[in-house]
Nucleic acid binder design. Structure first.
Length: 351
RNA sequence: UGACAUAGACUGCCGCU
């Protein structure tokens, strides 16, 4: 049974949930009793296929047939609801679990819901649950704090986020790389570079080693506040260390150059990243096209557009709307319409 | 011993002030 459950897990990770259910069928046929691990794995498979409705249906069936469930079962469903953008339903489900006495909501369940609420801009509701869990004697951990801090930063409540960070430190919870980076990114996004740098230094002092994401957040912050030189320094610094820049790091630099009207340099960076073994993605291409469009250099934009397709990239709605907007600004409506038709023909959503 | 759930970075327009 354990082996077959592992098999189901593999199938689900490959997106082959239907085959997973076939395996469940053969488990039953062989007279094995599937356990909670088996059901949890299948529920998770359905959730990651974005068919949360089916996951809930399946769950109801499991309940009706009296098969075993664990707190992970509920957690998986709640996470599924949150990831499908319906944290409110997740809260309702939490209440249902509570009222039926199915299980006592644990730390992970609260963490998932708080994160889901914050990601939907409902950080006030997240805060309420944060208080509620403390009241129930469940102590928030570093994950809880990082979800709350991320949410508060996203709604520009940096002071409140920083206060939570201090609260966590005072409780003796050791901040890890994720929460340091979330807080640093929050400061950067709010243009508070001094605070971001200060926290970065605290992080080093605490012996937490910054990774690619930490550097990338700082580089973006520096770029957005016009501190191009410092951004470059940091980029060199990370390249020399153990940390290699990722495609996101390069994308941020490409975007920053383009915003500065330096599409040509951005294009050179495009080649440099390939040389360094970092494969550009569609975001890189879109950013570069926008760079040319901003300068009104539609020929260069179109030339790159053609070359990216021959490199095997498939343009998306953003690629086309960038180009269309570029032509519109120059009042070249014929070319703009041409592209609208082209994207419609390709079956790309015209929004 | 070994199978299941949670947190961090990047692209266009529009809307909002």
């Amino acid at each position: 049974l354990c082996t077959l459950t592992i098999l189901i897990n593999c199938l689900c990770h490959l997106g082959l949930v239907d085959f997973g259910f076939s395996v469940l069928g053969s488990i039953l046929k062989r007279g094995f009793e599937p356990n909670a691990f088996t059901f949890n794995t299948l529920i998770r498979g359905l959730c990651s296929k974005n068919v949360i409705g089916h996951a809930l249906e399946f769950f109801r069936k499991v309940v009706a047939l009296g098969y075993p469930r664990t707190e992970v079962t509920y957690g998986t469903l709640i996470n599924g609801l949150c990831k499908s953008g319906d944290a409110v339903k997740a809260v309702l489900f939490l209440r249902e679990i509570d009222q039926n006495g199915w299980c006592i909501p644990n730390l992970v369940v609260y963490n998932m819901i708080i994160d889901g609420l914050c990601k939907q801009g409902l950080e006030k509701e997240g805060m309420n649950l944060f208080t509620e869990m403390k009241g129930k004697g469940i102590s928030p951990d570093v994950v809880t704090y990082s979800s709350m801090i991320h949410g508060l930063c996203n709604s520009c409540q940096w002071k409140e986020a920083a206060a939570l960070f201090d609260e966590m430190m005072n409780l003796g919870i050791r901040p890890n790389i994720v929460i340091f980076t979330a807080m640093i990114d929050g400061f950067c996004k709010g243009g508070r570079l001094e605070e971001a740098r200060a926290l970065f230094n605290i992080m080093l002092r605490e012996g937490v080693v910054p990774d690619c994401i930490t550097y990338t957040c700082l580089i973006q912050g520096l770029c957005n506040s016009g501190q191009w030189k410092e951004a470059n320094q940091l980029f060199q610094q990370m390249s020399q260390g153990e940390v290699s820049p990722s495609v996101v790091t390069f994308n941020i630099l490409v975007t920053a150059l383009c915003t500065e009207g330096k599409a040509k340099e951005a294009h050179e960076l495009f080649y440099l990243m390939i040389q360094k073994g970092v494969e550009p993605n569609l975001i890189t291409c879109n950013a570069l096209i926008d760079g040319y469009c901003l300068l009104g250099q539609m020929d260069q934009a179109m030339e790159f557009f053609t070359s990216m397709m021959s490199r095997g990239y498939t343009p998306d709605t953003i690629t086309y709307s960038t180009l269309i907007y570029g032509y519109c600004k120059l009042k070249r409506m014929n070319e703009a319409w041409q592209l609208v038709k082209e994207m419609a023909n390709k079956g790309i959503i015209v929004d």
